[in-house]
């Protein structure tokens, strides 16, 4: 992870601030930083989204390919995740430096998104046992300024919302051989239902309190954080304790409750925003990477 140097005095200042409910950038403990989302940013993907949360920048591309369903679940498609920690974000990621973090991130993304509660995996099925859609979700970290998980999860939700999978038709010849035909109309697409796709909320324990959306400085002051993924209904789909410290049982209950509350309030504005952006259609002003 990108490291920042925080002196003892700075730590004390920051921790005392959090104790009194004040943070360095003037936010309250359960506030997110300014967030900007843009979908459909990469033309070669089936769905893409870019998010910037403070100085954290994440780009997600979704590509759909036809593959073979897993033998244990013949009537479902699946998602594949790959997180690339670009050396642009910090020089530590150069070469194989970012690999460890990338694997850790993608493992958690599998747990959070690749299950039937979050995405309707059955809708990805083309022909049970033979063909299904495989969604390759590639995450690129462009800038790291803390709270990667939350940013990535929101970007994935936006990218999945934006994903258009071409409709296919299965025709059968006389010998029973099956053939997959792609529709001629490029606008004849299937959309995914992203309503249940969860968002991750990471709560960092600082002193006796916890903060949402910690920056790198704040993260350096915290020994343990709790990662909670919440759906729009407030169901908790994944909880992980991260970091080298331990947590008091009471604070865990407090943090899951706060995580649920924060996560729930995250979904409605996000969906509204995505729908609004889409309704603009061609009139939408593209911001791109320099915005």
């Amino acid at each position: 992870m990108a490291a920042v140097q925080v002196s003892e005095a700075e730590k004390v200042y920051l921790m005392h601030g959090v104790r009194d409910g004040l943070r360095l950038d003037g936010r309250r403990c359960e506030d997110y930083r300014h967030m900007e989302i843009e979908t459909d940013v990469v033309s070669n993907t089936d769905g893409s989204a870019k998010i910037s949360l403070g100085h954290t920048d994440v780009l997600v591309g979704v590509k759909a390919e036809i593959g073979k369903p897993k033998p244990t679940v013949p009537d479902e498609g699946y998602l594949e995740f790959f997180v690339d920690c670009s050396a642009n974000a910090t020089p530590e990621f150069e070469g194989r430096g970012g690999e460890e973090l990338g694997v850790e991130l993608s493992n958690i993304l599998y747990k959070v998104f690749n299950n039937r509660h979050s995405v309707d995996l059955r809708s990805l099925c083309i022909c049970p046992g033979e063909n299904c859609w495989v969604l390759y979700v590639d995450v690129l970290l462009l800038q790291c300024d803390g709270n990667l998980f939350d940013a990535i999860s929101i970007a994935i939700k936006a990218a999945l919302f934006n994903t258009r999978i071409p409709k296919v038709h299965i025709s059968e010849d006389e010998e029973g051989g099956k053939e997959i035909e792609l529709s001629d109309d490029p606008y004849d697409c299937m959309r995914l239902n992203v309503e249940n796709v969860p968002c991750i909320v990471t709560l960092c324990k600082i002193g006796h309190r916890h903060v949402v959306d910690a920056t790198l400085q704040e993260k350096a002051c915290s020994v343990a954080s709790l990662l909670i993924s919440v759906t729009h209904k407030g169901m908790v789909t994944c909880v992980r304790k991260m970091g080298r410290g331990s947590l008091d049982p009471e604070s865990i209950f407090e943090m899951t409750e706060a995580g649920k509350r924060v996560g729930k309030t995250l979904h409605a504005p996000l969906m509204e925003l995505l729908q609004k952006e889409e309704s603009l259609g061609k009139k939408r002003q593209k911001v791109g990477f320099l915005g």
């Binding site: 759906t231 789909t237 994944c238 909880v239 992980r240």
Partner: peptide, 23 residues
């Protein structure tokens, strides 16, 4: 010390169910 050093939950649960499960 009564400290939880690891917590790992998967699946879909209500928050109160999760709290009970941890207890």
């Amino acid at each position: 010390l009564n400290q939880v050093s690891g917590l790992n939950a998967d699946g879909e649960m209500r928050e109160d169910t999760l709290a009970d499960a941890v207890r």
